[in-house]
Design a binder for these strands. Structure first.
Length: 952
RNA sequence: GCCGAAGUGGCGGAAUGGUAUACGCGGUGGUCUCAAAAACCAUUGGAGGUUUGCUCCGUGUGGGUUCGAUUCCCACCUUCGGCACCA
């Protein structure tokens, strides 16, 4: 109690003083109003600095100022509150703040549609949301509320921008960006969703625009963002999503040269396949396309590029659309073998990935395979299949009679389909054996192929290995000469295309696994597990390339062409160029008199007073940047803002306060932010560390992601479905405590669940039962004193419940915690009828019950605590502890099985020995019936659980 | 296509190698009442039986490991979430 006494002493007396006849019914609305007021008056949830106690910074994701707190907020926030309260009762000094994510498009739309200023709209919404949030009865410290759209807040958002700019972490760049035509603003890559690449917010398919935009260099921390995941206690699902989003790959950068000598750099994860490269493809935007395109191809290339760029300008097609491209009339040289490679331009190569140029290795890459097959480019296997599989098909009449018998004689399995022989061969030895037999049976003027492994053509006059690009041409020519009447042979442009004509072969022509290198000059024979490393080393020695890491992660586009956001503090001067706003001039305020017109353009762009300014460097006329920042920038540092909101020092928050409270110990929120907010705030913290603002690497040590609350029909709540539940309706009738407990009871928090009207009524019934047990006096006089055993049984129930509820709380399993409390109450209802009522064991039980309910249902717990004559406040009490001895069972149900089937359940003392247990099981009548006349083979004894008699 | 989560009574769910269905909802029967609601009590996976006592079936599907699998392994199916031409 050492940490709670202060409040008890200050306020403990007052409730005693105002003694008056008590209402005996449970009236949630009255109780809730009463205690919310009292908590506020007494500052019960106010943060205190107390270095003698361990601190706990609990944080729930801040709500956006939509104007309404809905069931989703309740589902996210009330269990988070219960967890924070539990920590507090366990001796931690807890900081549990709240605030509002207040910038963003809806405010601006309201301004356009209804003529309300975004600021007015937002603050009005906040007013309403505060009221709704207070109704939850959460232990938020409202004195540290932060609202992102207030100048005192966004001054620091702008300060971060300037610091990042100085550190080279913010930069301006032109290029193709995703743009939502409905929201009229650019979007970060993360805000573009789905196959049709639609805007996250409004669903409109995005278009690509060429614009100058500001970016944060998050990629500078790509590796650290990846490595840091190992150090934090976050859900695996979030970590995996972040890992995938960062998308680290290892490979090599290899420099090819055009025949004119221009270097063409390529990034590949498969340097071991270099010898199989048969073409190169450049992204349509690649700068070398213009330079290298031969004059006679220039027009076709230009048309293709135009098409490609236009296509992405309309609606993006499905991902598996056919690969297209055009030859640009130029060639490159493969640095490893000098092979001449035609250079193509194709839109399946992305400028934003790697170097925007690839080497085409069609035998070991699905996209390259499809491309090569379509355009008749040669395909040479250079990596052996790790499974050693090979296939062969002998077409009807292509072998001399007697082959099936010979194969049987040689022990080579095959199947016959429509007169053709189909063979699946496993490993080199079997391939050799097959070749030796088949070679003798090749019909004159025909041949037999071995593909997938071995890679050879058996001609009557001898074997030709398909082991080089030269062999590719020679084999094709030979086959076409032998079979002038066969269309699929004549139609083939490459050996691989000829093989592709046989459906039986298709699944072995291409594979993407690592394996022994083949057909690769001196590297042939290099095993798959070493190939990549050895080739990379060799490339470095020869100066042809070097080891390289590539990330899928892109820099964070933060420019938004909107009014309602933090203005980017940059000035453009004709003389001085880009000039950052001096720190002393922050914040760059949003003009209040902007005009909101449905033109889609940012009002800032047409606000003369805002736009025109003087250059801080030369004093000459200059213009302001009119873009504002993505709202995710504001929410990337709000956990720091909460410490000392709208701080007036020279850094964004009070470092002394931060020293004690940071970092966040427990964060809770939705998983939908896995690759946005949760990545951005990690980036911010790392950048802040490098700026010397904090001395740790990760903002939130522990994260829990709750699931989604669905409508009664199991579908996402939406107005159009008509399944939206308004928690306020239930707060007014059943009370906030019922809503809280119900939401925690539905199921595991991380899985979400659906609302249920009968479910919440059940919870309300439960709270009424609790009230009845704790508050209502018992009718009738108590009988004689309870027995020792009865007392022990009640205490056992109490201590078992404390044990279970404590463990459940620690792992956020509120549903089972409440179930355990319900069971406890069921037991107490029965005990109340007995002479146990009023005993010490009874008092212990009732006090424990109220204490354990306090985090879940804070109002009713407080009221009952008072009525039990206990000092204010229940929320300052210590969490009850359990005694293992008292919780121990005296008897157990021993299960007697015969051959794994339950034949009897025996009540036996908990300390029963193995011998006694065996004897008791064997003595049972029903067990005897099932083992009668059979031999006992084995008896399995599981202490405290079962005896399993195995008979024959 | 790839990555992740999840499939258990009429419903939400519990049990992570040992009694499947805790707890709640819903249902059924009862008490109270003139009646109804509320509340309370009892009962409730399915099938069968010689009906307190017994037997069989049952955790998405099919295999496997084990004396024993909702739980571990393999393959598949369904639903949801994320990513998707990333070289």
């Amino acid at each position: 109690m050492s940490w709670g006494f202060r409040w008890v002493r200050f306020f403990g007396g007052s409730s005693m003083a105002t003694e008056q006849p008590k209402e005996m019914r449970y009236i949630p609305t009255e109780i809730e109003r009463k205690w919310q007021k009292r908590w506020e008056e007494t500052g019960l949830y106010r943060r205190v600095e107390d270095p003698t106690r361990p601190k706990h910074y609990a944080l729930t994701m801040l709500p956006y100022t939509s104007g309404d707190i809905h069931a989703g907020h309740w589902y996210a926030m009330t269990p988070s509150d219960a967890a924070a309260r539990f920590k507090r009762m366990n001796g931690y000094n807890v900081f549990f703040p709240i605030g509002f994510d207040a910038f963003g498009l809806p405010a601006e739309n309201a301004a356009i549609q209804r003529g309300i200023h975004p600021h007015t709209w937002t603050m009005r919404n906040i007013e309403n949301m505060r009221r709704q949030l207070r109704a939850m009865g959460a232990m938020w410290d409202w004195e540290h509320e932060a609202i992102t759209c207030l100048p005192g807040y966004y001054k620091w958002t702008q300060w971060f921008f300037l610091k990042f700019y100085e550190a080279g972490l913010a930069y301006r760049q032109g290029g193709m960006v995703d743009f939502c035509p409905t929201c009229n603003t650019t979007l970060a890559r993360e805000q573009v969703k789905g196959d049709d690449r639609h805007c996250e917010r409004c669903g409109t398919p995005v278009i690509r625009k060429d614009l100058e935009q500001w970016f944060f260099r998050i990629t500078q921390y790509a590796q650290e963002l990846l490595d840091g995941l190992e150090t934090i206690d976050w859900p695996e699902a979030v970590k995996i999503q972040q890992r995938n989003w960062i998308g680290r790959t290892e490979g090599a950068r290899v420099t090819f040269k055009s025949e004119q000598g221009d270097p063409i750099e390529v990034y590949t994860t498969r340097p071991d396949t270099l010898w199989g490269a048969s073409f190169m493809v450049l992204a349509p935007e690649h700068p070398l396309v213009d330079r290298l395109a031969a004059p006679e191809y220039r027009q076709a290339v230009e048309e293709y590029r135009f098409q490609a760029l236009r296509q992405s300008d309309i609606v993006r097609q499905a991902a598996d659309r056919e690969k297209t491209g055009v030859f640009i009339g130029a060639y490159a040289v493969n640095p490893v073998n000098g092979k001449r490679l035609p250079i193509w331009v194709g839109d399946y190569v992305l400028m934003t990935s790697g170097t925007g140029a690839i080497m085409g290795v069609p035998s070991h890459d699905e996209r390259d395979f499809a491309f090569a097959l379509k355009y008749g480019l040669p395909i040479l296997p250079v990596i052996a299949r790790p499974d050693g599989l090979a296939k062969s098909e002998v077409r009807p009449g292509w072998a001399k009679p007697g082959l099936p018998e010979a194969l049987k004689g040689a022990g080579i399995p095959f199947e016959e389909v429509d007169g053709a022989l189909r063979l699946t061969l496993h490993g080199q030895e079997e391939i050799d054996r097959y070749v030796a037999v088949a070679q003798r049976f090749v019909a004159p003027g025909r041949w037999i192929e071995v593909v997938g492994g071995g890679w050879m053509f058996l001609f009557a006059e001898g074997t030709a290995a398909f082991d080089s690009f030269e062999a590719d041409e020679a084999i094709l020519a030979r086959c076409q000469a032998l079979a002038p009447e066969v269309p699929w042979v004549q139609g083939a442009r490459t050996t691989m295309e000829l093989l592709y004509a046989t459906p039986w072969y298709r699944d072995v022509l291409l594979h993407v696994e690592y394996g022994e290198m083949i057909h690769s000059g001196e590297f042939s024979g290099t095993p798959g597990d070493r190939a990549k490393a050895e080739v990379t080393k060799w490339l470095e020695e020869k100066g042809l390339g070097h080891f390289a890491v590539n990330y899928r992660l892109h820099d964070w586009l933060i420019s938004r062409q909107r009014y309602w956001g933090a203005p980017i503090p940059i000035i453009y001067c004709d003389k001085c160029g880009i000039v950052p706003v001096p720190y002393k001039d922050l914040p760059v305020l949003l003009p209040e008199d902007a005009e909101f017109l449905p033109t889609g353009e940012s009002p800032l762009k047409y606000h003369e007073g805002f736009l025109h300014t003087t250059c801080p460097r030369c004093g000459g006329p200059a213009t302001r940047e009119t873009d504002t920042m993505d709202t995710f920038v504001c929410s990337s540092w709000y956990q720091y803002a909460y410490l000392s909101p709208y701080y007036e020092g020279d850094v964004p928050f009070d470092p002394e306060i931060g020293k004690y409270w940071l970092p966040v110990d427990q964060y809770t929120g939705g998983i939908e932010h896995a690759t946005m907010h949760l990545l951005y705030t990690r980036f911010f913290t790392k950048a802040m560390r490098d700026l010397g603002l904090v001395d740790f690497d990760e903002p939130m040590k522990r994260l829990f992601c709750q699931g989604m609350i669905l409508g009664e029909d199991g579908e996402k709540m939406s107005k159009s479905r008509g399944n939206v539940v308004n928690p306020d309706d239930y707060v007014y009738t059943l009370g906030a405590d019922s809503v809280r407990a119900f939401l925690m009871f539905i199921g595991p928090w991380e899985l979400g669940g659906n609302w249920s009207t009968t479910g919440i009524e059940g919870i309300s019934r439960f709270l009424n039962r609790v009230w009845g047990v704790v508050v209502e006096p018992r009718e009738g006089a108590p009988a004689q004193a309870p027995t020792e055993a009865e007392m022990r049984a009640l205490r056992r129930l109490t201590h078992q419940t404390i044990r279970e509820v404590t463990r459940d709380f620690e792992s956020f399993r509120f549903n089972t915690a409440i179930a355990a409390l319900m069971k406890f109450v069921n037991g107490l209802v029965k005990a109340k009828e007995t002479s146990l009522y009023g005993t010490e064991a009874w008092q212990e039980a009732v006090h424990s019950l109220v204490l354990m309910l306090a985090p879940i249902t804070p109002h009713i717990a407080e009221e009952m605590w008072e009525r039990l004559g206990q000092p204010y406040s229940v929320h300052l009490q210590k969490w009850p502890t359990w005694d293992e001895d008292l919780a121990k069972e005296e008897t157990i149900t021993l299960v007697a099985q015969v051959n794994n089937r339950v034949r009897a359940r025996l009540e036996v003392p908990a300390e029963i020995t193995e011998e006694e247990a065996r004897a008791a099981a064997l003595a049972n009548e029903n067990v005897q019936r099932h083992i009668a006349g059979k031999e006992i083979v084995q008896v399995i004894y599981v202490p405290g659980r079962l005896v399993n008699i195995i008979v024959k």
